[in-house]
Amino acid sequence: MAYDFFTEQPVTADNLAPALKARAKIVIHKRILPSLKTLSTADAQRAINMDIGVLQLLNAQQREMQDWPELFRRADSRYHYLGAKKPEGAIRWIIEAEWRG
């Protein structure tokens, strides 16, 4: 749907589900917390500090790769997690799901 930033959206909902059509794609561009077991001590400390900062500032948390399928399932069982990929040289991942409602 085309959207003009300066006008109110014609579709309103408290979440995505009421406005989605079957096979709609959900795309999230986000950092994914690496498994701390794979990091050096210094890198693990940086990742933990960033996670604590996100919690303090935004009341949120970083997620590891294996957390995303469950997150979509808990949001609504009609989401189907498609996977995540990190473009070469990028910091953030592209996480995809499909609406099967």
Score class of each variant (00 low, 15 high):
64 E>A: 06
59 N>Q: 07
1 M>W: 06
83 G>C: 00
75 A>G: 04
27 V>Y: 15
71 L>C: 00
91 I>H: 11
16 L>M: 07
5 F>E: 02
74 R>G: 12
9 Q>K: 14
97 A>F: 01
15 N>T: 14
51 D>T: 10
4 D>M: 13
17 A>H: 12
27 V>I: 14
87 P>S: 05
86 K>E: 04
56 Q>E: 09
75 A>H: 09
73 R>K: 07
41 T>N: 01
37 K>W: 11
77 S>N: 02
58 L>H: 10
83 G>P: 13
85 K>F: 15
92 R>P: 10
71 L>P: 00
50 M>C: 09
61 Q>E: 03
82 L>Q: 07
8 E>V: 13
36 L>W: 05
62 Q>A: 04
17 A>Y: 06
80 H>A: 13
33 L>D: 00
20 L>R: 02
2 A>N: 06
73 R>V: 08
15 N>F: 15
72 F>I: 02
7 T>Y: 11
95 I>P: 00
93 W>R: 08
86 K>S: 12
54 V>G: 00
67 D>T: 04
52 I>L: 13
51 D>Y: 04
5 F>S: 07
3 Y>W: 02
7 T>V: 14
83 G>Q: 07
78 R>F: 08
79 Y>G: 04
43 D>L: 03
65 M>R: 13
95 I>W: 02
6 F>W: 06
66 Q>A: 10
49 N>Y: 13
14 D>S: 09
